[in-house]
Amino acid sequence: MGTNEELSKLFENIQQINELTLEAYNSSSNFPAVNRNCKRILASVKMLMINLEQLDIS
């Protein structure tokens, strides 16, 4: 892991996880087992995004 292409792909994957989890979260208000686990995943995904945030700073 280290080339710009690899990092860009990593960033893209994390954004996809975020979008998919958000979708599952938003559609699970009557399904606590999914809703609460999605909420925790979103907290972890946010940490992933914070960890990579500097990559878009030139």
Binding site: K39, R40, L42, A43, S44, K46, M47, I50, N51
Partner: peptide, 11 residues
Amino acid sequence: DTWQDWEWWSE
């Protein structure tokens, strides 16, 4: 703290 904050703490 929220879950996100707690992720941040442990990070």
